[in-house]
Design a protein around this nucleic acid. Structure first.
Lengths: 336, 336
DNA sequence: AGAATTTACTGAACCGGGTAAGTTGTGGAG
DNA sequence: CTCCACAACTTACCCGGTTCAGTAAATTCT
């Protein structure tokens, strides 16, 4: 089956290629009557502009890129990324932008992917996740002048817009809640220590614990279930074991719950659990997990909107999305 | 920063654009010495061919498409798709193909996306998942002559290659295992009834149960945790409740486990649970779930290889991937 | 040695849109 | 009645690769 082109439309409408281009793009230069005739023909023969031709003639590629930099085995079960992707998609497909995905192993490879995409003119912009300290991706994006939006921060990104949520406020709320229930020994199992938002959370956790006169124990982990289990086991074998643990993601929280059950501890009787980021996973297990809920899809949609605005040349500024809300469920209670 | 083009390379090497193209693509028509000189210059200035220009001049777009047709809320926690994506990526990025993703709500919209992608010449082929009975996507793909590979089946797909695994064998093994443990009342919570592989599993489940003289109870569900919980509750309130349940995915199995615990039943003492598809989720919960394991990433890699072969014009045939292997864990035991 | 073939290129057309510059035709102002 | 402004187009070139036809030089064959 042959793909229809603007030349086909031009022939059928008895006008030139140029007129068809003006008509379909809402440019001035054709009469309203002609425009409608052309649009009708385009509809009829099912015309879609060849994205390659469009991109080649200086216009945008109508695609944005996303790199996922996590070990493959964890990508599968982290609801976070899929939530983000769903959110992006909602915005992108509404403006018929495509989403190009690439799974990479290291930030260095991520930079290479950006360079290649830029060279290939394959995408108009990228969404950057997991901002790190002195992130090597930022200078490259600035050098290439590739439109970008960073999720996670706040951090040093120069002109590049950022989206983050008030993690400090959220963890403070969670700790206050646990203290109000009567907990005095609260621990935290964190995500990858290299990520800026992990550091911000750790700082805030230390601050609130200090101000409440509690000891702040943070065990660094990596978002995987395995590491979450290990960290939990290490915390629970202690004679002075914590009565509540806050986990930096839902997967580790679920893993922690399993470890507690396996060790014969009841949740929430012997141990209260709070998960950061609420996915259906949290309501799925027994008991359902108290969580710091954010609308991750909305978070992604927000990022996509910012990115499209950047691509359109609009000035965008850093945005703070709403903070995570504490959603109490069955995994938190006063300690025995 | 200006993107380097083959014209830049040609100027620096003192040859024509055509020669550069031949040299970089390994085509005959340039001497080995010239080729090396050109390749060296390309390396040095960090040249990447403009994908739009390449796609426009008849060559491939070097991209494949994948549509995800599931409600957004479940996409997040289903490890299946992310596993597939990881697998695709491993193959695709090795051959520097991009993966373009789109989340859609219905198969009808999926067809529209295929048509648009084809019209835009954005992709060279698509990977089709969740094959249905009389799938409306198949005739469209045939009409457009869009290279495709179908995951899930077997079914009627004409010339389009399929990849599936021996679900009948796997479920037979699972049932036999449960019967060997002493179970006589085995139920199954299935995935979406419209999908061909769900139907194949139901058929096989009925067959083996009949041949062993057991009653075959299948409760249709939709892969979500919520529906999995509901189905499980319905099964367990029965006076003649089953002593073992097989779930069509891991998410429903985890939800089922939570329901059992919530109802005061012990797993595996009062109820044995088998999950279809093994993700880290299964080993994460307590007790860890006995699962029918498949290497989903390898499954995806396989599909990507087949698709790339199809795009290259090679004749591909239907492939049966290895069957799922029963991995016994703590959720199965003889009934009390 | 001369013809035939091969090698190593060059030049130009082409893909399908976008768009600046040029060309009509029409109506209104002077 | 002429001149000008403007709408409504057309023409032609651009984007950056691929590819085919053509060409000069080098090599092989008779």
């Amino acid at each position: 089956m042959k793909r229809p082109t603007i030349a086909d439309i031009a022939r059928r409408a008895g006008v030139s290629k140029g007129a068809v281009s003006y008509a379909l793009n809402g440019q001035p230069g054709v009469s309203e009557a002609t425009r409608q005739r052309i649009v009708a023909i385009a509809q009829e023969i099912g015309f879609n502009p060849n994205s390659a031709a469009r991109a080649l003639s200086g216009a945008s590629a109508r695609a944005v890129g996303l790199t996922l930099c996590r070990p493959a085995r964890i990508l599968g079960i982290e609801p976070w990324f899929m939530g983000l992707i769903s959110g992006f998609e909602a915005e992108l497909s509404a403006r018929s932008y495509a989403l190009t995905l690439q799974v990479v192993a290291t930030p260095e490879l991520e930079v290479e992917v950006y360079r290649r995409w830029w060279g290939e003119r394959r995408i108009d912009g990228v969404i950057v996740t997991d901002l790190r300290e002195n992130d090597i991706r930022i200078p490259v994006l600035q050098q290439l002048q590739l439109p970008a939006v960073v999720i996670g921060g706040p951090g040093e990104t120069g002109e590049i817009a950022q989206i983050w949520s008030d993690d400090a406020g959220a963890i403070t709320e969670a700790v206050r809640y646990l203290v109000a229930l009567g907990h005095r020994r609260i621990a935290r199992v964190s995500g990858l220590p290299g990520l800026l938002h992990t550091q911000a959370r750790t700082r805030a956790f230390n601050d609130i614990c200090t101000s409440l006169g509690l000891e702040a124990t943070t065990v660094p982990s990596d978002y995987t279930g395995e590491e979450g289990s290990r960290a939990t086991r290490r915390l629970l074998i202690d004679t002075e074991r914590p009565t509540a643990i806050i986990y930096d993601n839902d997967v580790m929280a679920v893993a922690g719950l399993a470890v507690a059950q396996e060790m014969g501890l009841t949740v929430p009787g012997d141990l209260s659990i709070v998960a950061w980021d609420d996915s259906p996973l949290c309501s799925l297990v027994h008991p359902p997990l108290t969580a710091l809920s954010r609308d991750i899809a909305e978070y992604g949609a927000h990022a996509a909107r910012e990115l499209l605005a950047t691509i359109d040349g609009k000035q965008v500024t850093n945005v703070e999305a709403g903070p995570a809300q504490l959603t109490p469920r069955g995994s938190t209670a006063p300690p025995r």
